[in-house]
Simulated scan of single mutants.
Amino acid sequence: MPTTTAANINRPIDPLDLQSYPLAWKVVAVLIGTLFLALSSYIAVPLWPVPVTMQTFAVTLVGAVYGWRLGGITITAWLLQGALGLPVLAGGAAGVLKFVGPTAGYLFAFPLAGMLVGWLVGRGWNGHRVKLAFLAMLAGNALCLVLGAAWLAVLIGAEQAVMAGVVPFLLGTVLKSALGAATLNVMVQGAKRIAQ
């Protein structure tokens, strides 16, 4: 029976082992990831000026599972799809104007958040240690809130940006981070069973 060593706990987690696959498989993984991100965008509670969606859950999970490089590429590809007019953003929205409106800061934060989570997971903040995985997800979500509110502050002022673009999302941020950490843990445990 395998034992859990410090080296195994801290090793980068890649449940899909994407780095060992050829480029064609990585392209397929990016397409699947963009589909997952698009579907997460349709799970929304409409609030103004920024809707509550499952996008940050998907962004942080893609970063965690794909790693910081491929995760960043996947999230950027999804945003490019939205900019080109595909209905993949919150509630099926699309178009270049979304990247200059109230949600622009959040959108531009998504690749950075996914990359941050992927980077942390690669340094042991992974599903082997659920508390650290939760903190990694929380860090990604917090980065989205900070950058999103910073852009929103340019449009409506700092105080209003915090009240409209951060405060309503704090509970959801914690819940989505916990869900992301739990999902990552399940994936890690599944990968461990397959490897045995």
Rank of each mutant, 00 (worst) to 15 (best):
L175K: 07
P46R: 11
Y42I: 12
V154M: 10
A29F: 08
A6N: 13
A77V: 09
A133R: 10
V28S: 04
F108A: 12
A104I: 13
V188D: 11
G148C: 05
Y106C: 10
V30G: 10
L175T: 12
A153L: 05
A64V: 03
F99N: 01
V162S: 08
Q189R: 15
W48M: 04
A93S: 11
A195F: 00
L23W: 12
G180F: 01
V146S: 13
S177L: 04
Q19R: 14
I75H: 00
V96G: 00
W78I: 07
N126S: 13
T103Y: 04
T56N: 15
G92R: 08
G85S: 11
V167I: 14
W78A: 13
A153R: 02
L116R: 05
T34L: 01
F36I: 14
A142G: 12
F36P: 02
L143M: 15
A164G: 03
G124H: 04
T183I: 04
A113R: 09
P2R: 13
A24N: 10
G63I: 00
P2D: 13
G118E: 00
L171Y: 03
L171D: 01
P168E: 03
A109S: 15
M1V: 10
G114N: 00
G72T: 04
G67W: 00
P12R: 12
F169E: 01
M137G: 14
Q196I: 05
A104Y: 04
L116W: 03
D14Q: 08
V174M: 05
W119P: 01
L184Y: 10
T5D: 09
R129D: 15
F57A: 09
A150N: 08
M54D: 00
F169A: 09
W119R: 07
Y66S: 02
I13C: 09
